[in-house]
Design a protein around this nucleic acid. Structure first.
Lengths: 201, 201
DNA sequence: CCTACCATGTAAGACGTTACATGATTGG
DNA sequence: CCAATCATGTAACGTCTTACATGGTAGG
């Protein structure tokens, strides 16, 4: 549902091929919404079929071609409806909470390993997002540079501020997950589970 | 992936029919992992086909029947592997962060409405989870009562502590989302968006 | 000539959503 | 007898994952 809006957001900066889009996707909006290439190409075709984007075929060397996509007025309207409309929330589905709730069935080692893995996972995500946040503040990410180039002077600070806001949510999420898992490890200590010293926080 | 383990966790308390399971699901583990009935019945059949659970058909009145499921040794092994094994993490896909990052394209009213809706959504979730947490502490939720009845005395505190841990993650998540959206509203104020007083926090 | 990168997908299957569909029994 | 609850699903569709598949071009 959100994939096409992520793609429209990128395409609104200027015409691009599926390949360019896919590369830029991973380096920008892909931090907020992951999508593999095998999903991007078909989605572009679907969006084209629905009239949200159009493609122009360009020759590439002697035999190669590539399709340069651009947003149509209908695509602009659809994007506007998305950004101005309400968000529909997915139902809860938290594998980590589910597992934590049944951790009495795990061995002490497995329980500790699970929480340590959770901390490691979210620390990795946190590091990525904080790094990206710093690049946004410095206005050095390629997509942001391109976007700011087509944005009126007066609007640029807002563009940066909202990118920052998006990443801040993820940073907050990661911090909450880490704090929770650390509390979980302390709970294991309190319950007398062995191995307290073996896991470094 | 997690659905079957949520179902196994419930079934491990004692034999139950699909219908009973579905009701109890909504009232207990469904707070951590949502699943509609239309997903539960087919999943039970799949688990039966894979030998994780078995059913005994019981007569119900003159014509009706119901299938009482119980966990097989293979099911116990599979459950144990899940609870002792590592969790695989899904890639990021955060619609709210994505939208926030492109909020410069929204009208000031829509931007405010989005953040206010976000707060309202997560406040609703938070209230539910905090209420459930209180019921867990008081040991009054039906499933927990049943589970504690089949749990040795010495293990009961641990069972309750881990249920609590599971909910605490969701509570932390909800609080982080609310705090983030409130910061977002303050950002709109700083950017000079109109309507600061019209939204009550 | 060969490697890295450009360029574009298909296919199968798991997982989830929404809507639809049917009938039995029990208690008032 | 009628409503609530018991009881069990199917069907169609959309999204996402994983793996596979193919070929072109540019630079060293």
């Amino acid at each position: 549902m959100s994939l096409r809006y992520a793609l429209l957001a990128l395409l609104r900066v200027g015409p691009q091929s599926g390949y360019e889009l896919q590369k830029k996707f991973d380096a920008s909006v892909g931090h907020l919404w992951h999508a593999p290439d095998s999903q991007i190409y078909p989605e572009l075709r679907k969006m084209e079929a629905e009239g949200l984007i159009e493609a122009e075929e360009q020759a590439r060397g002697e035999r190669g071609t590539r399709r340069m996509y651009h947003v149509t007025p209908a695509g602009e309207r659809d994007y506007s409806a998305w950004v101005n409309g309400p968000l529909s929330y997915a139902r809860v589905r938290e594998p980590a909470s589910l597992k934590a709730a049944y951790l009495e069935g795990a061995t002490p080692e497995a329980a500790r390993a699970f929480l340590a893995q959770h901390i490691a996972h979210w620390r990795g995500e946190l590091a990525q997002w904080e790094a990206e946040l710093a690049r946004v503040d410095a206005r050095v990410t390629p997509m942001l540079v391109d976007r700011l180039a087509v944005t009126p002077e007066d609007d640029r600070d807002r563009v940066v501020a909202f990118k920052r806001l998006g990443y801040e949510n993820l940073v907050g999420r990661a911090r909450a997950e880490i704090a929770w898992a650390e509390r979980g490890l302390r709970l294991l200590d309190e319950l007398g589970y062995p191995g307290a010293a073996s896991v470094d926080i």
